[in-house]
Simulated scan of single mutants.
Amino acid sequence: MVSPRVILIGPPGAGKSTVGAMVADRLGLPFVDTDALIVQEQQRSVSDIFVVDGEETFRRLEADAARRSLDAETVLALGGGAPIQDAVAELLAGHRVLFLDVAIADASGRIGFDQSRPLLAVNPRATWSRMMTQRRPAYERLATWVVDTAGKDVETVVEEVLAHVTKVDHD
């Protein structure tokens, strides 16, 4: 069965897109980001989908993008809320899932908590902290591995991700 070499999960600001693209490049694999896939297919931003169609519609699109992305050898990054959905969590069973953990100080520096993130539009720091408290148990339960990104540069995180993935490939 062909499947992603690794699936990256974590909250906004964890570095899933940046790290995922670099890991894919180093492994010589395509990189797929489900949020980018949705934006490309819908021809509008995630924020616009949330505002116009609502979160439920976006979550349905997100689950569908995740399902369609599991049958190719890629490095796959899921949107932060995807693994919280039961349907997506079930899809992840048996796959190599890596949780990129991040503290709020690092996340805020990376994403700036701007208006492009609809769930963080009001009181972004408190909302992010509450969201992470709710999501952390699912991230940890689904993860094959966890890489803490706190205070680390991107290259260091990429090396840690590759160490996990390539160790399994050689075992």
Rank of each mutant, 00 (worst) to 15 (best):
Q42D: 05
F113C: 03
V161S: 09
V168D: 15
E90N: 07
R141F: 04
D86P: 02
H95E: 01
S116W: 04
E160W: 00
G81P: 04
T127P: 03
V88N: 00
V32H: 07
D171W: 05
Q115E: 15
Q115R: 13
E56F: 06
R135V: 11
H170V: 14
V168C: 03
T166K: 13
R141Q: 13
R136P: 06
H170N: 13
P4A: 04
A21T: 05
T74V: 11
D114C: 02
E155H: 02
V2C: 05
P30I: 08
V168R: 11
Q42C: 12
R130L: 13
D53C: 06
V146W: 00
L27H: 11
M132R: 11
S116E: 13
A66T: 13
L70C: 05
A66M: 03
L119Q: 08
A107L: 08
I104T: 15
G81Q: 03
E56A: 15
Q85I: 03
E56N: 09
T156S: 11
S3P: 01
S17N: 09
R67A: 15
W128G: 00
F113K: 06
G109W: 09
E41W: 03
A103H: 12
R136G: 02
S69V: 07
P118F: 01
V97C: 00
R136K: 13
T133L: 11
F31I: 10
A143Y: 02
L78A: 09
S108N: 11
T18V: 14
K152P: 04
D169N: 08
H164S: 04
D114G: 15
A143V: 01
V168M: 07
L70A: 04
A82Y: 00
F113V: 06
I38A: 10
L92C: 03
Q134Y: 06
R60M: 10
D53W: 08
K16L: 07
V146F: 00
D153G: 06
I49N: 12
G28H: 10
G79T: 04
Q85G: 01
I49H: 07
D64W: 05
L92Y: 02
D169L: 15
Q134L: 11
D106R: 09
V52I: 14
D153F: 00
M132H: 12
E155S: 12
D35I: 06
L119W: 02
E56R: 13
D114L: 01
E73R: 12
R26D: 12
G54F: 00
E41N: 14
D169P: 00
L61R: 10
R26E: 14
L37G: 05
A150I: 06
P137K: 00
V2P: 14
E55Y: 10
D86T: 15
G151R: 03
V157K: 07
V158F: 03
A24E: 06
T34L: 05
A121C: 02
P83I: 00
D106I: 11
P4D: 04
T18P: 03
H95V: 04
M22V: 15
V168L: 15
L92Q: 02
T156D: 12
W145N: 11
R26S: 06
T149F: 14
Q40D: 14
E62G: 01
T149V: 05
V122R: 14
D148Q: 07
S47T: 15
I9K: 04
R96D: 12
K16D: 04
L119T: 13
L162Y: 03
R44F: 05
V154S: 09
L119P: 03
P30V: 01
I9E: 03
T18K: 10
M132Y: 14
G81Y: 05
Y139D: 05
V97R: 00
V75M: 01
